[in-house]
Write a protein that binds this DNA or RNA. Structure first.
Lengths: 136, 136, 136, 136
DNA sequence: GTGGTCTAGACCACG
DNA sequence: GTGGTCTAGACCACC
């Protein structure tokens, strides 16, 4: 398993946030299993050609959230107990993200169908690789 | 027609952006029609208990986007709706917003159907008022 | 490459607009290439002996126009050239600028040939450097 | 002869400036001859549906420039002695207007030919009616 | 270090 | 009255 992190250049989302989101996603899709070790701060920083402080901040956030656990001297590992958010919290986050999304695209005058189609397409693209890996 | 702007102080979204979003939304839904006058910088600043410069910044952003037009000495008015952005730029922005949206919600483990349904619901809520006006 | 910004205090053109114009011009002529970093807000403000907020406003305008991109914590960089405006909007802006231009000069009684020649001359001066770079 | 003033809504050029420019143009093309009377402040304000103060300001500017002369109690008339600017002043104004024009359109990425063609077209359109009137 | 946001208060052009 | 510009100085997130 290789953790693939892609950073989006034009985005307003800070780099460390992008890393956090992608690690969380990898954990929730199973690409990263409990006990898996994450690349070191220096290694990931080198791979992404970014400041090590940025990676450190992302890792600190993930640790605080309980997604990963640090074993001092050994490294960072995906937490054994899968983090479960309350349904209220999950709903709140979805609503919040949706609100931001809508405020950014509504004035672009896309049709409802165009938006829904593109979203469905992207959702399929995300699920597909995960499903393929399950077969392995 | 009454423009109601609500700002939440605890939000990470800057105040001026909240104003921009709400005006854009009001225009999208038809709550604000072309030619309608917006509250003056000073009036809105007083109403929201914020600095007039913050409102001015929001208005400047909307002007630059072509959503509203300033008539010197008279005030700010909703502009005729027109698409100022190229199709390429519209596509880029939709892609970018969608990318950010997905990175924020995918790890929440909602099903594809749940996400699509909620989005469709929200899109209907926005389009409805505009459609209702067509009946007039 | 050295970006030279000159501001004239007596002008009716606001300071921040002068900065915007000169950066846009530098990008148009190729004096500033995509990826080039702009001087920091504080540095340029110090150099021009103006308030940093004025420079920030100019930079914000350029960012909104898609001419430059901010990389949080790193600085401002010239963006890849792309047309963010729709063809209709480009046409509207050309028409509007031409209208204003004509209203300011027609009463000066220059001949049609004089005006056309001078404009052609200026357009050549702008295109020349860009063309020269193509040879590289 | 009827003085036709058209005000441009989307323009950033203030209304009073637009009136000044159009009267100056009418004088330079001969549409307004020395001795011709201008409409009263109130009449023109009513015709253009604007504030009388705006018209008054435009007339004051024209008087100050020597383009028109006020005969107290009788009205405003086009000055007998045609105002002549020095060649240096004419050149300076042309350069200045051209500079503003270019800074507004260069980043729109029109070709040199497109710009020149449109300018020529507009110059022809302006000369044509004046020539037609000479025939009358 | 970088840019982004917000406040406070001043001055100006325009109508 | 309106919006637009500029200054001064503060705080924040990000890298």
């Amino acid at each position: 398993m290789v953790l693939e992190i892609h950073t989006q250049v034009g985005s307003t989302v800070p780099l460390y946030r992008q890393i956090v989101d992608q690690v969380r996603l990898a954990v929730s899709t199973g690409n990263l299993a409990p006990g898996d070790q994450l690349p070191s701060v220096r290694a990931l920083a080198e791979q992404l050609v970014i400041n090590p402080n940025t990676v450190a901040k992302a890792y600190a956030t993930l640790t605080q959230e309980g997604v990963v656990e640090a074993y001092p001297g050994k490294g960072l590992f995906v937490a054994q107990r899968r983090q479960t958010l309350s349904n209220e919290e999950r709903g709140r986050r979805l609503e919040s993200a949706l609100h931001t999304f809508l405020s950014e695209i509504l004035f672009l005058d896309f049709t409802k169908a165009e938006i829904l189609d593109l979203l469905e397409q992207r959702l399929d693209a995300v699920d597909a690789p995960a499903a393929a890996q399950d077969v392995k």
